[in-house]
Computed example of a mutant assay.
Amino acid sequence: MKKAIRTILLIVCICVFCYSAYNLINIYLNYKKIDDDYGELANTYTSVKDEKKEEQNYLQIDWATLKERNNDVKAWIQIPDTNVNYPVLQGETNDTYIHSDIDHQKLSAGSIFVDCRNEKPFEDFNTVIYGHNMKNGSMFNNIKSYTDQSFADEHPYVYIYLPDGTVSQYKVVVGHIISEESVLYNTYIENTSSYLQEMVKTSSIHVDFDQSQVQSLITLSTCTSAGSESGKRNVVHAILQRKGIDPTTEKME
């Protein structure tokens, strides 16, 4: 009887081990696919002019070929010295690219995408951009770090590359955790002063800027870490600092 019980326990342990190993392999393969797919995009459509280790230069993007692959690409987003380096798409709904890649193929990490309510992305006062918070550090995982002052100080700029060949530089001014129902997700802003006051009210970081001079901004949103309060999002707001930058002639700050 004892021998039979031991045999059953051994079989159960083996089954649990095999199931766990299967899940771990699937997780590894999933993250590998994410890294491979987005690595392929970056290698195929972007390059860096006169790349040197001691300085950061703007990306050179093959917009014609990238737009041929998918005309839903509205921009390319880059935050230097982080993993944020991706094409930005916009679908008919916010579900279009939440779990789909640039080729509309199923991918757990989905794509970085602009809110479908933005009629004129990067021209509207507030352009909202979403990305998943992946455990392997990809997509918008780095966004959650902007609740830390030192990280914000060391990574102050977000660069948006546009299909017209220019680059816009945005300065991060707010990092916080907010409700997914927050008014800060609004894309149509009538009272910009009220919006900006609401924006800075719960910021975890402090960055000086003149609210009266804000022309437009981007809102970067991702899920909070696993186990955090549901219905909350890690959000970064960055204000437009410069636009129309020629990446072929200028050096990145």
Rank of each mutant, 00 (worst) to 15 (best):
residue 66 L to F: 13
residue 139 M to V: 02
residue 114 V to M: 07
residue 164 D to Y: 03
residue 241 Q to I: 05
residue 47 S to V: 08
residue 119 E to H: 05
residue 2 K to R: 13
residue 99 H to Y: 12
residue 207 V to G: 04
residue 216 S to Y: 01
residue 121 P to K: 09
residue 99 H to T: 12
residue 40 E to Y: 11
residue 148 D to K: 11
residue 75 A to I: 02
residue 44 T to K: 15
residue 233 R to N: 01
residue 131 G to P: 09
residue 43 N to S: 14
residue 21 A to Q: 11
residue 64 A to L: 11
residue 79 I to D: 01
residue 236 V to G: 06
residue 125 F to S: 00
residue 237 H to S: 04
residue 163 P to I: 07
residue 152 A to G: 15
residue 43 N to W: 00
residue 150 S to I: 08
residue 67 K to W: 05
residue 122 F to M: 02
residue 40 E to H: 07
residue 118 N to F: 08
residue 139 M to A: 01
residue 130 Y to N: 04
residue 21 A to H: 09
residue 126 N to F: 06
residue 39 G to K: 08
residue 34 I to Y: 05
residue 245 I to M: 05
residue 123 E to G: 03
residue 88 V to W: 05
residue 113 F to D: 08
residue 216 S to G: 08
residue 21 A to K: 10
residue 74 K to Y: 02
residue 211 Q to A: 15
residue 160 I to T: 06
residue 78 Q to I: 03
residue 146 Y to A: 04
residue 241 Q to N: 12
residue 210 D to H: 12
residue 64 A to D: 15
residue 220 L to N: 06
residue 216 S to K: 15
residue 193 S to I: 02
residue 133 N to P: 05
residue 131 G to M: 06
residue 144 K to T: 08
residue 104 H to D: 14
residue 98 I to T: 11
residue 33 K to Q: 13
residue 37 D to M: 11
residue 194 S to P: 00
residue 85 N to Q: 08
residue 28 Y to R: 05
residue 112 I to R: 01
residue 239 I to E: 02
residue 33 K to Y: 14
residue 120 K to E: 11
residue 143 I to S: 02
residue 31 Y to N: 15
residue 117 R to C: 08
residue 226 A to K: 11
residue 38 Y to G: 07
residue 140 F to R: 06
residue 52 K to R: 12
residue 218 I to M: 02
residue 187 T to Y: 03
residue 11 I to W: 03
residue 239 I to P: 05
residue 219 T to V: 11
residue 23 N to E: 06
residue 133 N to Q: 07
residue 42 A to S: 13
residue 235 V to I: 10
residue 7 T to P: 00
residue 162 L to W: 00
residue 44 T to E: 14
residue 42 A to Q: 12
residue 203 S to Q: 01
residue 42 A to K: 15
residue 232 K to F: 02
residue 65 T to Q: 14
residue 16 V to A: 14
residue 165 G to H: 10
residue 81 D to W: 00
residue 127 T to A: 04
residue 211 Q to N: 08
residue 6 R to I: 12
residue 131 G to F: 07
residue 76 W to G: 07
residue 32 K to Y: 08
residue 52 K to V: 11
residue 112 I to N: 01
residue 35 D to C: 09
residue 47 S to E: 13
residue 154 E to A: 14
residue 157 Y to F: 13
residue 246 D to T: 09
residue 120 K to T: 13
residue 125 F to W: 07
residue 153 D to T: 15
residue 140 F to I: 04
residue 122 F to W: 03
residue 167 V to A: 03
residue 179 S to Y: 00
residue 19 Y to K: 02
residue 69 R to I: 01
residue 219 T to H: 01
